[in-house]
Write a protein that binds this DNA or RNA. Structure first.
Lengths: 252, 252
DNA sequence: ACCCCTGATGTTAAATTATAACACAATCAT
DNA sequence: ATGATTGTGTTATAATTTAACATCAGGGGT
């Protein structure tokens, strides 16, 4: 029973919400009344809210609230989760890592449950997520908060970066093409990204394949500036080959 | 209609949740179908989640989640809301204000819906709350994020403060006594508070009466350092008199 | 071993709530 | 003026939740 509830919990956390009919299909031997009671328990535990016909993850709701400015949260959720899980494999303990702002990176942050890490981030959301990890030391760069992408930027943020060292930077990109490289829509944010990439020993870009072929006004990195690109399996093979020629590792 | 939805929104924000029957009683001339549709809009706006029989405020849910480690949220909620509303009266538009971290200040932040303001804060939570106000420019001081009080502190945070000007600082205190003044439990956080108070033209402390008589290790302000104290009506009259002799204004 | 208790689960009927479809009035730009 | 749009109310229908009861398995205590 404990186990079934844990399973439901995980399902909700990953999908954001669940319908009762879904759960019935997922757990055939269990009556709907029991599933209802399980959701009730999850509600009492503060994990989810029950809605008509199911339940929603409270963590997700907070993120939706915070990221309403663009309906990016639930979009490509499965891909983002998959990418985040792969990125997890690149992290060693006791390192200094930088987490860029963005939903994919947020997914990664959620998986950093108990690793001993020094985390610096440009996102207040991600900072709050990381602070739940009792073994992490969390820093945020501060500065002006952009309504658009909920990230900090500006001069003071740049100065902050001068005072820290970064082993691995996990970066997000809004667009990518071989010609223009990794691009973003906000000048100040891209200045931050550039500085982070300069300072980091290793740069990993997390990007789902939907960003491919899109060009945004500001380039923050050329393909040659990064070490690894992590994406989903819809990522075209020929681009992987092109990147590979430059010694880049691409993980799908 | 816009007005009715705003009213419902405020009601939800204050109470955390509503039942449809409550709304029907509250707004007699309106059909339940319309109220349902209003809740639906609030859900689309990211303000609330609809539950069976009503809706819950997403902000409340997030706070429950984020502050599970310390059950401070719902404690003295009524007092905190009352204090925040009084503080609202001290704010003029087009000013630079500082918002300290803390649940009472968070309540205030939630009321800053559309005022044109320059907001600087030491709390990632409050920054995220304030960014919802389309007319606010939001800055956060950045630095090391404390797990204890979810606030930024450290050298870089102090440096940040040197570069900004503050008209009014809204500060929170964990303890107060006439002898030791306003106190807090974290050294770094109190250093930040001290610097803010130095820089601010006007200092307003928001503190519910439960903090009275408590002394925490670090004093960040003596009674003489602040301009106004806002508290609830359980605040003892003789202390108000003592503060009044120093020219302090106390609002209950 | 026995019995009674407890807690988890399943089953059903009743109550509650949500939805969909339609109708109507007010507003607004062409 | 008119057609479109939007907000609203009304109803019937559908869906979901609740409550109450029945069942079953395990867990002490005598």
């Amino acid at each position: 029973m404990q186990e079934r509830i844990a399973q439901i919990k995980q399902y909700i956390q990953e999908k954001g919400e669940v319908k009762l009919t879904e759960l019935e299909a997922l757990l055939p031997g269990v009556s709907s009344m029991t599933l209802r009671r399980d959701l009730q328990k999850l509600e009492e535990m503060g994990v989810a809210v029950r809605t008509k016909g199911g339940a929603k993850s409270i963590s997700h709701l907070s993120r939706i609230k915070e990221e309403l400015y663009a309906t990016r949260t639930l979009e490509n959720m499965a891909e983002k989760t998959a990418i985040a899980k792969k990125a997890l494999g690149c992290i060693e303990e006791d390192r200094s890592i930088f987490l860029d702002s963005g939903t994919t990176v947020m997914c990664l942050a959620q998986f950093l449950d108990s690793q001993k890490l020094f985390i610096t981030t440009s996102s207040p959301n991600i900072a709050l997520e990381c602070i739940k990890n009792p073994n992490a030391t969390v820093n945020a760069i501060g500065g002006s908060l952009s309504r658009e992408n909920l990230s900090f930027s500006g001069i003071t943020a740049l100065n902050f970066l001068d005072n820290i060292n970064i082993d691995i930077a996990f970066m997000a990109a809004s667009g990518f093409s071989m010609k223009n490289g990794f691009t973003g829509g906000d000048f100040n944010e891209c200045e931050i990204k550039k500085r982070v990439i300069e300072k980091a020993s290793k740069v990993i870009v997390l990007m789902d394949s939907s960003k491919l072929g899109k060009n945004l006004p500001f380039t923050f990195a050329k393909p040659g500036d990064i070490d690894t690109l992590i994406s989903d399996d819809r990522f075209p093979k020929d681009i992987i080959r092109q990147l590979g020629r430059g010694g880049k590792r691409t993980v799908l």
